[in-house]
Write a protein that binds this DNA or RNA. Structure first.
Lengths: 212, 212
DNA sequence: CTAATTAGGGAATGATCATTTCCAAATCAA
DNA sequence: TTGATTTGGAAATGATCATTCCCTAATTAG
């Protein structure tokens, strides 16, 4: 599934095309960054429209011009969160040379997001899985797609390592990819309780035994 | 921290001592089981008092006689959830002979909770970490204590394995215990998206490389 | 038996929530 | 310029939420 498929019709407006009428004054990306922060820290249900609008620097009326409803804000913020995160992750992976090192960089990426203050603020995808999986089938689909994308990426990296000789060819790449997926999402859960950087780094290092 | 320390004063009443006045008619444990199901499936904030009281088979007035407030219901349900889960986990571990097998049983315990319908319903501790970590310091403390207890238990099991020769003595028991903790809580997150039993079992098997 | 106490439950209560309405301001099409 | 269109924003709206009140019922203490 592509990330473009994330936005359902009329949930969020076009960011670029010039249309008639008064032009939008606020920066959509900045507003979504603010919204995403509120949703991530407080969770979907505890994030009130007043908190969202205040963080976004907009009146509620303006928000409802730009988004269909609270769910629409969430879905748009979720899409942006995935795009930004995926970009940062891919840049790190590209800089690593071997398959094994790419796997390590992916694990480290999530470990580094999961300690200290950043860790306390949580992950929008993990939060979405908790808050919406049984209540919103479409949102649940986006969450599952985000997990699947990570799982597939990790499986690809493992196979690269198996091809270049840095990961044993005998291990089950798909099963190990799911193990790594659970591990990295678990980092984000444990990170919400406030963990030291050294602890998370050590856990990431220990995890590399999975591909040894 | 002991599990007894979970209940703050006046949050939930004594279950046993006979007092004056009309005796309680409902079964506290059954009511808490119902409440923890609602909290686990819907999350703390999406669980309304009406849903809770309906599931518990009580009127709202009766619930507020037995608990201080919604938070009190949650804390009592959380305490019961931990007690029940810990008991089941310890029974499984006790049945295993070697340290390595005890570790495997602990991983399998969480893997089995994380597939199919049970997996979709989520984990109250993981949900608590997501819903309350930044909003309720006391609840956050209970969540952190639950994680710490699992982490310590896992570290103990690894050391048993290192002592009986089933786990390499060279590996870092504490770091690996945290890795396993993240992994098992990640199981519960991924389980919310609906995973097949075979997938989760394979991921649990693959995870045993961490102690190989 | 009577008074005190506690539980059960349904009907208020007041706060907060998501959403809508309405009007002024800014742009485009003609 | 004029009209249509869209945004910004403050105030209103109606629903839902957690919580309290109040009355009845069941028990214990004396």
């Amino acid at each position: 599934m592509t990330i473009d498929a994330l936005t359902s019709a009329a949930v969020a407006p076009d960011t670029k095309t010039r249309s008639r009428g008064r032009p939008r004054e606020f920066d959509m990306d900045a507003a979504l960054d603010a919204a995403l922060r509120v949703f991530s820290e407080r969770g979907y249900h505890a994030a009130s429209i007043s908190e969202l609008t205040e963080a976004m620097g907009l009146a509620s009326g303006s928000v409802y011009k730009a988004f269909k409803d609270k769910r629409g804000i969430f879905l748009a913020a979720f899409k942006r969160y995935r795009q930004l995160g995926r970009g940062r992750l891919e840049a790190r992976i590209a800089a690593a040379k071997t398959g094994r090192e790419k796997v390590f960089q992916m694990v480290m990426y999530y470990a580094e997001l999961s300690h200290g203050e950043a860790g306390l603020k949580g992950c929008l995808v993990v939060g979405g899985a908790n808050d919406l999986s049984l209540l919103d089938a479409e949102a649940a689909g986006h969450v599952a797609a985000a997990f699947s994308a990570d799982e597939k990426l990790m499986a690809d990296l493992i196979r690269i390592g198996q091809a270049d000789g840095t990961i044993p060819p005998t291990l089950d790449a798909d099963a190990t990819a799911l193990t790594f997926l659970c591990l990295t999402k678990g980092f984000r859960v444990i990170g919400r309780t406030g963990r030291a950087e050294e602890e998370m780094m050590a856990a990431a290092e220990a995890a590399m035994r999975l591909v040894t």
